[in-house]
Amino acid sequence: MMIDIPDGAVIHTVLFSFYDDVDECARQSAVEMLRSAGHTYAAGDDGLLYWRVNENLDLRKNWHLVEIGIFADHESLRRFVKSEIHQAVAERFRTISNWAVGDLMS
């Protein structure tokens, strides 16, 4: 699927690695929380253009989950990061995983 990414948009990618002691039920609950967070946020802010969360297909480096969000601009991403929705997700994932973030401008 090709999507049209406008100039100036920010592609926000996060790789999550769950801690070894986190069971499958806790992982799935967190995944659903993260999926719904983007969709809930997008309903109230038109700066989030695309949101996808799924299990990583390549586990060689122990990254279990991939999140991709495309934001209209850097300010849209900043609003998301400061939002209550993002703060709740970050607090939850802080207890069950490590993560790495990569952001790039289109």
Rank of each mutant, 00 (worst) to 15 (best):
N62P: 02
D4A: 15
V31D: 03
R78D: 11
L57V: 12
F80A: 11
L104H: 09
K61N: 09
S106Q: 12
D73R: 01
V66R: 02
S36D: 11
V81I: 15
H39L: 15
D21I: 02
R79C: 12
G44L: 14
L49R: 01
E84I: 07
D46H: 09
N56S: 11
W51Y: 04
N62A: 13
M2V: 05
Y41W: 03
H39Q: 12
F71C: 08
D20L: 05
E24I: 03
E91A: 15
S76H: 05
R60K: 11
Q87R: 15
H86A: 08
L65R: 02
D23S: 10
A42M: 08
S29F: 00
Y41D: 00
Y19K: 01
E24M: 11
A42T: 12
T13G: 07
M1V: 07
E75W: 06
G69L: 11
W99K: 10
Q87E: 09
E55T: 05
D46N: 13
C25A: 13
I96G: 00
A26R: 00
T95G: 04
A42R: 13
F16N: 03
G69S: 10
L15S: 08
H86W: 11
R52L: 13
G69R: 15
A26D: 01
D7K: 10
A26H: 04
Q87L: 14
A90F: 12
K82V: 05
D23V: 04
D45C: 08
N98D: 14
F71S: 05
S17E: 01
H64W: 00
L77T: 07
R94M: 08
H12P: 06
D23K: 09
R60W: 03
S17T: 03
G69N: 10
L48C: 08
E75R: 00
Q87S: 13
V66C: 14
H12C: 10
R52G: 06
L15V: 05
D45E: 11
H86N: 09
S97R: 02
N56T: 06
A37L: 01
S76R: 02
G44S: 13
E24W: 01
V14P: 02
G44I: 13
N56W: 01
A37F: 02
I85C: 08
V101E: 10
F71I: 06
E91P: 03
K82I: 05
F80Y: 15
E67C: 07
F16A: 00
W99C: 07
V101K: 14
R94Y: 10
E67H: 06
H64Y: 06
E91G: 08
I85N: 04
Y41G: 02
L34T: 14
T40Y: 07
I5Q: 09
S76I: 09
